[in-house]
Nucleic acid binder design. Structure first.
Lengths: 247, 247
DNA sequence: TCGGTAGAAATGCCAGACAATTAAATGCCT
DNA sequence: AGGCATTTAATTGTCTGGCATTTCTACCGA
């Protein structure tokens, strides 16, 4: 029954699906070893290259890892938070870059998500997280910072804020918002924004977290959202005007 | 410079990374055609099977699609919201199933995320979404419903709530929370929960959205969160006690 | 003009072979 | 008997070459 799933798909896709189902259903547990490529080829009645294509598909999804040598082979992979986040970020980046998402829609989603974790962050933020955020604040105040580095620090700050909520599942889910959408918005707004205003808002945000005051943190985030939206719409309006003039 | 990225990794992984970078960087746009497998094999100085493995990796990430026949080949894929959501859900499900996530942590994250979109849902919910939610409510009230169907309807209701916020980016980001974490929690709590209480909470939730009252919706969600947490901890405590007795 | 057919280009798949890597088994020396 | 070097077997990584299949294009004939 293994190989009879979808009749029209590629063989390697069918085999990959069959194995993936076994992993997702729990028939294969983390660190279990799959049969060797030759055995799988026999089981599915296909050639080894076809099996290999299927395994590469699974490897691309971080579902398996392979080891060479005797008693090597393909092993069901234990998906860590870090890897899951990396995948989530890749998918999010791709989605945004390919779908002409309106700036206001992205902005709204990103801040809605970040505001979801400020109450937790305010109540649970540790000294470590505060120190990390203060460090980013200090970097952002340096005037000689390149735009690129400033944006990276911006992301790092928000990332630290999310992590300070102390909920790894939440951190994972928000990775897409912070590390994919924030850079996208930075790319649009970095020419127009006032760094000092951003740093001021960030400082008040961290202050609010340190004071364990969720309302204030939320208010600052709302302000940051409004400012970002204003910047974005300004830049886009200017672009539209320029294009109209050019045409 | 294409093939010189990481020296220790597999060739197919390096080639996949190289092409992926080109897509992510925008050098290859949606619906662009990649060189044929034979040409890629030449460019990277590898054999065709190796190129094919690389292409399968990219296909597994929905980065490319392939077409057979003359003037077929591999094309950069336009990633739709639906596909991105499917990937996000798969990754989330896997992450949760492999990491022994504490129930309270998952519960907290899931509700924090859902509560992030209730204000938007309350202000934007359309008749269509309300109708969909009411339909799920009606189904959930049927006593002959199987546990499985009840859970599916539960997910569908929350899904509709998220969608009613009218922000596709937000819907995408929340897909992991609703469609991966909700079923997980249902699997734990379904034996202990009172359907009538759930339906009551759901009804009040939809009522609040219909009345465009975000505060009330948020309050109901908080109540649902508390009830879910209580159920989960009850079930887990009972399990622990049973195991201790057994040992 | 229309329809069918042959060709070309591409992916899908297979068979067999060799290289590289790694762990276990073996054997040798002390 | 114990420890170290060597062999061996298992397995993945890669290549070569080929055939099957699909699909578009272009030509040719009625």
């Amino acid at each position: 029954m293994k190989s009879a799933s979808k009749s029209k798909a590629d063989l390697s896709a069918k085999i990959a699906k069959s194995i993936r189902d076994q992993i997702l259903s729990g028939a294969l547990l983390a660190d279990d070893r799959l049969p060797s490529e030759a055995e799988l080829a026999d089981q599915f009645s296909v050639s080894r290259p076809t099996v290999r294509e299927a395994l590469k598909r699974l490897a691309a999804q971080s579902l398996i890892r392979t080891e060479r040598g005797a008693f090597g082979g393909a092993f069901v992979r234990h998906l860590s938070y870090g890897e899951a986040q990396a995948q989530h970020i890749t998918t999010s980046t791709l989605l945004l870059s390919m779908n002409a998402v309106r700036f206001d829609v992205a902005c709204e989603a990103r801040f809605a998500l970040e505001r979801a974790c400020t109450p937790l962050a305010a109540s649970r933020r540790s000294k470590t997280h505060l120190t990390a955020m203060r460090a980013e604040l200090a970097r952002q105040a340096l005037p000689e910072l390149s735009d690129e580095t400033f944006c990276a620090s911006d992301v790092a700050l928000h990332r630290a804020l999310v992590d300070s909520a102390g909920n790894p599942v939440l951190s994972y889910q928000l990775a897409g918002a912070v590390e994919a959408m924030q850079p996208l918005m930075n790319m649009i707004t970095f020419t127009a924004r006032s760094r000092s205003r951003i740093v001021d808002l960030h400082t008040r945000l961290v202050d609010a977290l340190e004071a364990r005051c969720p309302e204030q943190a939320d208010a600052v985030l709302a302000e940051l959202q409004a400012y970002t939206l204003e910047l974005g719409q300004g830049v886009l309006a200017a672009r539209a005007a320029r294009e109209e003039q050019g045409a």
